[in-house]
Amino acid sequence: MPGLEDLYREIILDHYRSPRNRGELPSPPAHRVEGFNPLCGDEVVVSLDVADGQLRDIKLAGSGCSISQSSGSLMSAAVKGKPIDEVRELIRVFKTMMSVHEASLGDDRTTGAEDSPAEPEPVDVSKLGELAALQGVVKFPVRIKCATLSWNALTQGLDELASA
C-alpha cells in the first residue's frame, strides 16, 4: 500500500512552500501558455523566453495543489537556461516516468510498434535529478494529471513556438 510519504517527499513540500521561478514574464516578447485541470480547477500560466534554440527564462504562475505546484517549480528549475533539445528530452523522460504516452509529444522515439504501448521503457532516474522525487505520484493515479499539468503547458508552448 502506498503511503503518504511516497507522495509528499521533502523536496516536493519544499518546492510547494517556496516555489522557484514564480511569476510571469512580460508577454510579448515572452510566450505565454495556460494550462487547466478541469477536474480540480487547478491552473498554471507558463511564460517562456526562447531564443537561439535555448530556453533562456521561464516563469510559472497560477494556483493548485502541492503536486501541481511543486512539479511546476521543479520543472522550471530543471529546464531554465537549457537548450530546447535537452528540454524536450527531459519532458520525454519525465512523462515516461509518469507513464503518460502522448502522441502530442511527437518525438517519442522509443515507441516502436504503434499499438503496443504496454511496457514503458525503464526510466534513467539519474537524468531527472530532483524531479525523481515525483516518482511516487505514479502510485496515486488520480494525481498524475496534477504532476503533468505544467509539463503539458510547457510542451504546448514549445510546440507553438516551433510552428510559429
Binding site: G3, L4, C40, G64, C65, I67
Partner: peptide, 22 residues
C-alpha cells in the same frame, strides 16, 4: 492554506471519502 486535493489525499489515508474540487 492547504489545497483541497492535498486535504482529500491525506483524508483518504484515514479511510475518509470527501470530494475535492470546484
Amino acid at each position: 492554506d492547504v489545497h483541497a486535493h492535498d486535504l482529500a489525499q491525506v483524508l483518504d489515508q484515514f479511510g475518509v471519502c470527501v470530494r475535492p474540487g470546484h
